[in-house]
Amino acid sequence: MAQPTDLLAVLVDADNVPPSKIGAVLAEVARFGTASVKRVYGDWTKPNLSSWKPVASEHVIQPMQQFANTVGKNATDSALIIDSMDLLYTRRFHGFCIVSSDSDFTRLASRIREEGVTVFGFGERNTPEAFRNACDRFTYLDVIDEPAAESAAVVPTRVPGPKLRSDTKLVHGLRTSVRTASGEDGWANLSPVGLLMRKQHPDFDSRNWGYAKLSDLIRATELFIIEARSGGLQVRDKRKNGD
């Protein structure tokens, strides 16, 4: 996974991302590295993209013009893909941030990862699973906010414990990750559990259920024991032997 000092390329599909979310995306990107390249792709002659222009200027994002030469063909996607490969071959970047909800970028994400480069995806909830899973990490736009807007932001409703326990995919993933990361005593460090969850499901994020921290989400399920022990927070399945 990229580190805060790593160089990242941020490539935005203007047709599939609301400009109001780009500040929050860049704040999230800053957690993983330095966005040394920031580009947003679209046909800027179209009136529906006019709201992007002041936002791109504010966040110093380079607008990349791509005319829609043929009806029914997305030339913008092609331009983003070509630029991504050009940037990839410079070997300068530790990670690529693809901001789109479009499944057309599934193969691009896979190809970048084949080079050992991390891919961070950002998109709407309706983003196709294939693209989400092609990324190392995928974040939904509705769970992130700009730091300056946090105080005024609507706090996501936390999914209650009973509903969490009925989420078989979540429960199975957590139990499997805890079991895999645990020692002979059944205790596992919390950090590796989160990493294992994301390897199985790149779109895993405790904020998807309204919890700011993974520890809060796990506690809310009431299926695990969490204790502060040597080495940090550790978690254990309440079931005997984790079976």
Rank of each mutant, 00 (worst) to 15 (best):
residue 3 Q to K: 14
residue 6 D to R: 08
residue 7 L to A: 15
residue 11 L to V: 09
residue 15 D to W: 10
residue 16 N to C: 01
residue 17 V to T: 15
residue 18 P to I: 10
residue 24 A to T: 06
residue 27 A to V: 09
residue 28 E to C: 13
residue 28 E to H: 15
residue 29 V to L: 07
residue 31 R to E: 12
residue 33 G to P: 04
residue 37 V to I: 13
residue 37 V to N: 01
residue 38 K to V: 04
residue 38 K to R: 15
residue 40 V to G: 13
residue 40 V to W: 03
residue 43 D to C: 01
residue 45 T to I: 06
residue 45 T to Y: 09
residue 46 K to C: 06
residue 47 P to Y: 09
residue 47 P to D: 14
residue 48 N to M: 05
residue 57 S to F: 09
residue 62 Q to E: 15
residue 62 Q to H: 14
residue 64 M to G: 01
residue 66 Q to R: 02
residue 67 F to S: 07
residue 68 A to V: 08
residue 69 N to G: 12
residue 71 V to Q: 14
residue 72 G to A: 04
residue 72 G to D: 05
residue 72 G to N: 03
residue 73 K to T: 10
residue 73 K to M: 01
residue 75 A to K: 04
residue 80 L to I: 05
residue 81 I to M: 11
residue 83 D to P: 00
residue 84 S to K: 04
residue 84 S to T: 12
residue 84 S to I: 01
residue 85 M to I: 14
residue 92 R to S: 13
residue 93 F to I: 09
residue 94 H to S: 15
residue 95 G to D: 08
residue 98 I to A: 07
residue 99 V to L: 02
residue 99 V to G: 01
residue 100 S to K: 01
residue 100 S to Q: 01
residue 101 S to F: 07
residue 101 S to T: 05
residue 103 S to L: 05
residue 104 D to G: 12
residue 109 A to M: 02
residue 111 R to A: 11
residue 111 R to N: 07
residue 117 V to G: 05
residue 120 F to K: 06
residue 123 G to T: 07
residue 123 G to C: 05
residue 123 G to F: 10
residue 124 E to H: 07
residue 127 T to V: 02
residue 128 P to S: 08
residue 130 A to I: 13
residue 131 F to A: 01
residue 131 F to S: 02
residue 133 N to E: 14
residue 135 C to D: 04
residue 135 C to G: 04
residue 135 C to A: 07
residue 135 C to H: 01
residue 136 D to A: 03
residue 136 D to M: 03
residue 136 D to L: 00
residue 139 T to N: 06
residue 144 I to V: 11
residue 147 P to K: 14
residue 147 P to H: 11
residue 151 S to I: 10
residue 152 A to L: 15
residue 153 A to W: 04
residue 156 P to G: 01
residue 157 T to K: 15
residue 157 T to C: 08
residue 159 V to M: 14
residue 160 P to N: 06
residue 160 P to C: 08
residue 161 G to I: 12
residue 162 P to V: 12
residue 162 P to F: 12
residue 163 K to V: 15
residue 163 K to S: 15
residue 170 L to K: 11
residue 171 V to C: 12
residue 178 V to R: 02
residue 178 V to F: 04
residue 179 R to V: 06
residue 182 S to K: 05
residue 185 D to G: 00
residue 187 W to L: 07
residue 188 A to N: 04
residue 189 N to M: 06
residue 190 L to Y: 02
residue 193 V to Q: 08
residue 194 G to N: 04
residue 196 L to Q: 09
residue 196 L to F: 11
residue 197 M to G: 13
residue 197 M to C: 14
residue 198 R to W: 06
residue 199 K to Y: 08
residue 200 Q to H: 13
residue 204 F to S: 09
residue 209 W to H: 12
residue 212 A to H: 03
residue 216 D to T: 11
residue 218 I to E: 09
residue 218 I to M: 13
residue 222 E to F: 00
residue 224 F to S: 02
residue 225 I to D: 11
residue 225 I to F: 00
residue 227 E to D: 11
residue 228 A to Q: 08
residue 228 A to N: 10
residue 230 S to Y: 06
residue 230 S to M: 07
residue 232 G to I: 05
residue 235 V to K: 03
residue 235 V to R: 03
residue 235 V to A: 03
residue 236 R to E: 00
residue 238 K to W: 00
residue 240 K to R: 13
residue 243 D to F: 12
